[in-house]
Design a protein around this nucleic acid. Structure first.
Lengths: 199, 199
DNA sequence: GGGTTCACTCTACAGGCGTTGACCCGTCCA
DNA sequence: TGGACGGGTCAACGCCTGTAGAGTGAACCC
């Protein structure tokens, strides 16, 4: 018996359900314990399924990880935000990613492993950080735009890490409103390059 | 034959040298590939030593990791900085830690594993972030001091991650002066709480 | 309603891991 | 100078991992 109940379900529907159950279990485990400690056996057990079935569905553990951490830049509002709204939109994007509907597990799984899993590292750097930062750089423009956008992305990532993964108490327990109120002015300072000191 | 040359060295000196060689190799590997992928065999090979010797010296892989990532808050200048110098000192501390003398490997090893190794997670959160942030909070004072200090620490950590571990190009290749010039104003915005919007 | 498909399971393998205990041999002390 | 100490090595164990292949029974199609 698998996830389904006693009702009748078609074979296709069963397949879709168990695949989703495996993916969900994988996301949760990858996000909680990291890639190496999240064994295929544990994922399968959590999904109520035989380990071999996971292999059959996804081919390898790396494929499973790739499927569990797939990222799309669809809902990245900062890319469409006007210049003055970039800081607020960047913060909002982080909150939506981790606290919005759709679940944080996918993003958390990617972030949790971005320092130790080569593919997660590459994905977060190239497909997320660089991709978004270069879009933001175009929006904000001016001298050092790339670096200022990169620093903004770095601060946002630092916030995400501190709040959702490391769970620094002061940062993790603060309300969204407080974080927005305090951090937005800081990011706004990155919109414009400060005047060079007496040159 | 181990790391020593042909000169005569006392037994104690030999012991100290090989222990240091093992620690250095461990730090480098933990920092590069992470705890799980850095095998004891690889550490031993890199130190030019038998794997069993590593066990004999450190007892277990976890002990070796703890020894390789030991952290002290001795050279954290931000804790002694006057209020207005806190942002500059915080940035300087990061640069000194990763680019100063003494080598970045220890800090990198701790940071690389802070998301996937439980003990590294705890150490970075409690002994580094919380400890420093609460000191900074006392210095800057005012409303939401804990949260503002935590956000500052988060931004600094985001910078460290982006520059030294993820190696986001724009952030990793920038000069120290440019990073300081652009980021300091942003952190200064966290020194004081912005006025509450009309209330 | 019988053959076929396919989701699913069972069992097993090969390799790599941390860890161990017995063993060697140069250095130290009496 | 001889025995003992201890740094260092060797070979091996037991465990856990990702993965493979044969097998099973219910759902599907004609």
């Amino acid at each position: 018996m698998t996830a389904a109940g006693t009702e009748h379900v078609s074979r296709d529907e069963r397949r879709r359900r168990t695949e989703a159950a495996i993916l969900e279990a994988a996301r949760a485990l990858f996000a909680e314990t990291g890639f190496e400690r999240a064994t295929i056996r544990a994922v399968a057990a959590s999904a109520g399924v035989d380990p071999a079935l996971v292999m059959q569905y996804f081919g390898s553990k790396d494929n499973l990880f790739a499927a569990a951490t797939r990222w799309s830049r669809e809902h990245v509002s900062v890319l469409d935000a006007p210049r003055s709204q970039v800081p607020a939109a960047a913060i909002a994007d982080l909150f939506e990613t981790f606290e919005g509907p759709g679940g944080r597990e996918g993003a958390a799984a990617l972030m949790r492993n971005c320092l130790t899993h080569p593919e997660a590292n590459r994905t977060l750097r190239d497909d997320v950080m660089c991709s978004v930062a270069s879009g933001v750089a175009e929006t904000i423009g001016g001298e050092d735009a790339e670096l200022r956008a990169g620093l903004m992305a770095a601060c946002i990532m630092g916030l995400g890490l501190s709040r959702y993964l490391l769970q620094i108490p002061a940062v993790a327990t603060a309300s969204r409103a407080d974080v927005e109120r305090l951090l937005e002015p800081a990011l706004c300072a990155l919109l414009d390059a400060p005047e060079r000191p007496a040159g």
